[in-house]
Each structure stands twice: as structure tokens, then as C-alpha cells.
Design a protein around this nucleic acid. Structure first.
Length: 354
DNA sequence: AAGTCGGGGAA
DNA sequence: TTCCCAGACTT
């Protein structure tokens, strides 16, 4: 019943400048869901190919529910935040089980699904069903904090409540989907994080931040990610053109992805240090059957909150033994179907393309 | 409330 | 380097 003037401006802008994206102007909640999960903390340019390949292989809820998690992770390989893929798969099975494979229409039901939080539930409900829920993502925080000059930290519960209330107040309830798309697209294209072109902004006469020269100070974030270093000593064991792999199963980075046997420590080892490690001795009690190359491959893998220093040792052995049989044995050429981290992928690319 | 989870692109 | 991206979950 009430259309806020700012929403009108944003929607007018949107109709002119919106990008043509494959998940836009579709009403299938499944497709919208997949796109929303892929785009969490991920740029459109990075997620585009993943989206197209994913929905080609898994075109609907049931095809995803029927798949093995391993294959779903393989389709996610390289995209990061793999809990998204695990939860996506889990939620597909929840939908198959609890809703007969039909994506739920009720907001509270959508919110219960694994991997769907406040933002994604609002996005699906408004895009697919036109329900009046306001989205608040990184774009919305930026637009609202600047236009209204709000310096409450966006990563504090207090700030999040404040922005959520404001977003709900501005929402065009009759056109919730378009309104939500408009404000996010506006944040992504016009009200960008660094050096926005405020001279051509349709809200330049209404923007508090522009008026007070604080565009570059908003939004406010109070937490800074602390970067920690980790040291991975990988064992690339070769035995008759086969190697050994393990699945990372603990609550840690790359959960349920495969990798070479690993000794994590507070440093990278030399070959001499490596063979003195208890874990290594347990694996190879008899070092006479081993050929450990003095050449190894070092990588510095940079993540948002981690610097991972990785060293891959090349170990050749003539005979197998019972100690490292606990690892899955696989033909090196057959690793292709297993989901692996970007780091392991880069190592494999390096040794097979030289 | 704080910590954790990936990877890449832009400035 | 630093920041941030259509965030969610665990502790």
C-alpha cells in the first residue's frame, strides 16, 4: 500500500541497468535456491559457470537428492565454502523427505532447511513467491548505511537488527521480488565498495554519506579477520602408478574432500625432519624400501582467514605395507572423479604439466 | 558474541 | 597488501 520513494527510485534504476542473468526472471524456487547458495560470498562472475553446470547436472530437487554427496562436492570443487554444497545436498533430501520433493512455500519451512539462513529465505520467498520479506545482504548493508548515514556495525547483532528493520520499512510489499533485486543490484553496480561514481547516482540528493563526505567510511565493520598460518606436510606416495588418498572428515577446512596423507605441524619439514616424525615412522617402519626425493613442491595457499604453507614430498615405494593401507589406494589417473581442494588441484597440475 | 569456513578479483 | 563478494553454522 505504501511505496517508499527510495524504492521507486531504485526500481526505476533497476529496470534500466539490471544485468541479464540466467537465474533472473525465473520463478522455479529450485533454480533460485541454487543461485542464491552459489552466490553467497561469491561474485557473479565466479559463480556463473558453476551455476550453469550444476543445474544442468541437477535440474531439480529430486535429481539432487538422489545424487551422492561426493558428486555434488565434485561439482562444487574450486568454489570454496564446501559446507554450502553439503548443506545443499542435505536440504534436497529434506525437501524430498518432508515435502514430497516440492520446494516449500512457507517462509518458516524454507528457513528450516540446511544452509538457508535469514537472507536466503527472504530471497527465495520474495523472488519465487512474491512474499514480502526484505533481503539484507552485503549490498543492502552498504546502500542503507550510506544513504541513511548509519554507522552501526553491520557485524554486530544490534546493527543487524537495525538494518533489518530499516530494510523492512523500505520494502515495496507489492513488488518484493523486484524491490529486493533492485537494491542488491544497485549495491553491486552503482553503490560499490570503493570509489563509487556518486555523480551519476540517482540517490545523490538523498544520500547522507555523500552530504557528509563519509561514503568511504561506510558501512562500519568492527571485527577484523585474524589470519593464522597452518603448515601441511603432504605425502605423495607412488606405488606402481598408484597413490594413496584420505578423506578429510573432521570439522575443519575442506571437510569431505580428498587429499594425500598429511602431517600437519607448526612448520614445514625437511626430509630429515619428516622421517623422524612419529606419524611417519608409523606409516613407514621400514625406510629401506622407500625412495624419498630431495625435491619437493612448496605452495603458499592464501585464504581469507588462513595462510596455508604446504609442502608435497615425493615418496616412491616398491612394496605396499599394512600401515598405510588404511588410506584409499587409487590410480593416479583415476583421481579425476574425486573432489579435491584447489591446493591439491594446483599440485597435480604442476607435476603433470611439466 | 566470536570463530570458522574458500577462492578469486579489484584497487 | 587489503577488502569484499546475493552468508550460515558452530561454539
Amino acid at each position: 500500500m505504501s511505496l517508499h520513494p527510495y524504492s521507486q527510485i531504485l526500481q526505476n534504476w533497476y529496470h534500466i541497468y539490471k544485468r541479464d542473468l540466467p537465474w533472473r526472471d525465473v520463478s522455479d524456487p529450485y533454480l533460485i535456491w541454487i543461485s542464491e547458495i552459489i552466490l553467497q560470498q561469491t561474485r557473479v562472475a565466479q559463480g556463473m559457470d558453476y551455476y550453469l553446470r550444476f543445474v544442468t547436472r541437477f535440474p531439480n530437487v529430486l535429481s539432487l537428492a538422489k545424487a551422492e554427496e561426493q558428486e555434488v562436492l565434485k561439482y562444487w570443487q574450486g568454489l570454496g565454502y564446501y559446507s554450502r554444497a553439503r548443506n545443499l545436498h542435505k536440504a534436497a533430501r529434506q525437501i524430498a523427505e518432508n515435502y514430497g520433493g516440492q520446494f516449500p512455500h512457507v517462509h518458516t519451512d524454507i528457513l528450516k532447511l540446511s544452509g538457508i539462513g535469514i537472507y536466503t529465505a527472504a530471497a527465495i520467498a520474495s523472488f519465487a513467491y512474491g512474499q514480502p520479506y526484505a533481503v539484507v545482504d552485503g549490498n543492502v548493508y552498504r546502500v542503507l548505511s550510506r544513504v541513511f548515514g548509519i554507522d552501526s556495525p553491520i557485524d554486530s547483532p544490534r546493527g543487524q537488527k537495525e538494518f533489518a528493520a530499516l530494510a523492512a520499512e523500505l520494502l515495496d510489499s507489492e513488488n518484493a521480488g523486484t524491490h529486493n533485486q533492485a537494491i542488491m543490484e544497485f549495491g553491486a553496480l552503482q553503490c560499490v565498495p570503493v570509489n563509487p561514481d556518486c555523480g551519476i547516482c540517482p540517490l545523490k540528493d538523498n544520500c547522507v554519506a555523500l552530504k557528509t563526505a563519509s561514503v568511504d567510511k561506510l558501512p562500519v565493520k568492527e571485527r577484523k579477520t585474524k589470519i593464522k598460518a597452518r603448515y601441511f606436510n603432504y605425502l605423495f606416495i607412488k606405488h606402481e602408478n598408484q597413490t594413496y588418498l584420505q578423506k578429510r572428515e573432521s570439522q575443519d577446512i575442506w571437510k569431505n574432500l580428498y587429499e594425500f596423507p598429511l602431517i600437519e605441524s607448526d612448520r614445514l619439514f625437511t626430509v630429515d625432519q619428516l622421517i623422524e616424525q612419529d606419524e611417519f615412522k608409523t606409516l613407514f617402519p621400514d625406510t629401506t624400501a622407500l625412495k624419498i626425493s630431495s625435491i619437493y613442491y612448496d605452495f603458499k595457499h592464501i585464504l581469507t582467514h588462513r595462510h596455508i604453507f604446504a609442502r608435497f614430498f615425493m615418496i616412491e615405494t616398491d612394496k605396499t605395507n599394512s600401515h598405510y593401507k588404511k588410506f584409499g589406494k587409487t590410480l593416479i589417473d583415476n583421481m579425476d572423479h574425486l573432489p579435491i581442494s584447489r591446493l591439491t588441484e594446483l599440485f597435480l597440475e604442476k607435476i603433470f604439466t611439466r
